[in-house]
Amino acid sequence: MIGAALLEIKGLTISFGGLVAVDGLDLAVGTGEIVGLIGPNGAGKTTVFNCVSRFYEPDRGTIRFKDRDITGARSHEIIRFGIARTFQNVELCRSMTTLENLLLGQHVVMRGGVIRDGLRLRGAGADEARATTRADEMIELLGLTDHRDRVVSVLPFRLQKLVELGRALVSKPALLLLDEPTAGADHRESQALADLIRRMRDRFDLSVLVVEHDMSFVMGLCDRLYVLNFGRRIAAGTPAQVRSDPVVIQAYLGEPEREVVDA
């Protein structure tokens, strides 16, 4: 682990209607680390994300971020603490343009208020201009310049994923949660994405927790991996360690067809 733990999950347990989705999970992400969370479909990976971003209420366990207990926080506060996320199936504001989505990403770093906005008081315009500049920088960085003023619902899925990544990044997070970033991308695009994520980490001092199906992507990108199966952590370590772990091979890597079916 590089540096002190930024995110620390202890004993996370959540069940839905008697089915235990995540069972006593311990997980930590250090500052500057890129950590992968892998496992077969239904292993509970996205559920972990939903607990961290407070969409789900865990039954037991604690989630600490920057030495602060966020287990009881509300979902909209999470991004303010410095955790931004993307979604498996993309949750963009479909009627907004790329630019508008990236402005929304800066919601918590902008000041607002209905009266201030309605009367255009005290630098509301300047705030907006600053946010637009930052959004434009990100758009350029992600190569989305041609799509800046397009409504995102007309963009192909792969680009929507990219817009979502940009929207998470403009909030200046310390920790980025990426849910299947390679969905919709081919092998070469996946490699480019891995490069991009590494560059973003270095440029913005990020830590990254990534859920992914694409094994070569994860193995190449991550410093450390956690493997989940049926909600339980069955292995953890560097990609090399995980790759040679017999339990993992049996549960996951041993069924290559399954990966194809799931993806």
Partner: peptide, 21 residues
């Protein structure tokens, strides 16, 4: 404005709106 964008975000996707703070 900022406020209006939050309104539209709620209309488009409450999930996205919450995740964006």
């Amino acid at each position: 404005s900022h406020t209006g964008r939050a309104f539209i975000a709620i209309r488009d996707s409450e999930t996205a709106a919450r995740a964006m703070g």
